[in-house]
Design a protein around this nucleic acid. Structure first.
Lengths: 184, 184
DNA sequence: GACTCCTTGTAGCAACTGCTACATGGTATG
DNA sequence: CATACCATGTAGCAGTTGCTACAAGGAGTC
């Protein structure tokens, strides 16, 4: 493996941490290069352009998110929607995963603006979410699995969105209030 | 009233339409000026700086959103959470209001990046949302009104977020699936 | 008519954006 | 030892960003 390929890996790893910490706030080429500990000149030697950098890093982050999600809620016995939501939100509102969800919200907004490469990233990650939910969803025959999966994702993402712009104190109360709504 | 003050009003009105149509994608000073039909030089004569422009326009948009929300779901009889969510999502996923919600998601993401003046805007709008929900919420004594209100907002916003990055076809199915989740 | 203030245009600044041309030292292969 | 390719630095490009200095026309006031 060439130095170039090795460095790609190192840079991706470091920038994953950078994005998870700072979101999309510091993502100019020079800022990314500094965060990765290389010169901007070299960043564009390792990657074709800025979009390729971000795509690679986001793929890395999405992969880790997917891994952790599947680890936290394995695909063993299907869960009823309310229970799946409860388990998922328990996990995504935890201190470790909040920054993943925060970044996800930012990426969705960037995709809404049409900014490359975010639309493609969002399509791919969203597809992964759908499959993840579908594989764990216990629904009666004839129910709308796709619609229900989308609704579950919406609830989980909605919690993340409100979490971003709220006091830390409200988040757990919001989650448990939601749990009440879904089970009564 | 001076020409300057009149022009402020005209510009705010036009830019509200611009933001609702294009989101935050075209918000450089020169792009805003062009959308408002004035020179960038004059835009900064009417307003102190870019942040003041955006703050004024967003206040205008938030005001209209608030108006329409209160118009669609008047504060007459309190509603149980599930019913309030159903009514609210019915409204916010409609063709007219989707662009409000889309812009809202973008603004929250911008606030997450710390970009002025979005954090202040988000705090204000979110406060308005909370009061709006609280005024329409029928909850048993002793329940967590704040937490429940936040949860309801999360569900509504989550639908908007997923709506942004989905086919048009999935949105109504998602809404009705959610309705099922909340009422069984 | 001189003076002042409101309004508007022209021109431009310094900083930053993504990206590239060019040179150069190294290392490997013929 | 020569040639070719990999790796890296220096410098800079053209475009965009938010913002400003300066001048000047116009309107009203002394």
């Amino acid at each position: 493996m060439s130095i170039r390929d090795e460095q790609r890996g190192v840079v991706i790893e470091r920038l994953a941490g950078h994005l998870l910490t700072h979101g999309l706030a510091r993502t100019s080429l020079r800022q990314l290069a500094q965060a990765a500990g290389v010169s901007d000149r070299m960043l564009l030697y390792y990657f074709a352009d800025k979009a390729e950098v971000l795509a690679a890093v986001m793929a890395r982050v999405a992969g880790e998110l997917s891994l952790r999600l599947s680890d936290a809620i394995p695909e063993v016995a299907p869960l009823k929607p309310a229970e799946l939501v409860r388990r998922a939100t328990d996990f995504t509102t935890g201190p470790e995963m909040r920054r993943f969800m925060r970044l996800w919200v930012e990426v969705v907004a960037a995709a809404a603006r049409g900014e490359a490469p975010y639309p493609a990233i969002v399509a791919q990650v969203m597809g992964g979410f759908r499959m993840w939910v579908d594989a764990r969803l216990d629904l009666p025959e004839g129910a709308d699995r796709e619609g229900t999966a989308a609704a579950i994702i919406a609830v989980v993402d909605g919690l993340a969105l409100v979490d971003i712009c709220s006091d830390d104190e409200i988040a757990p109360r919001m989650a448990s209030a939601l749990s009440v709504l879904l089970t009564e």
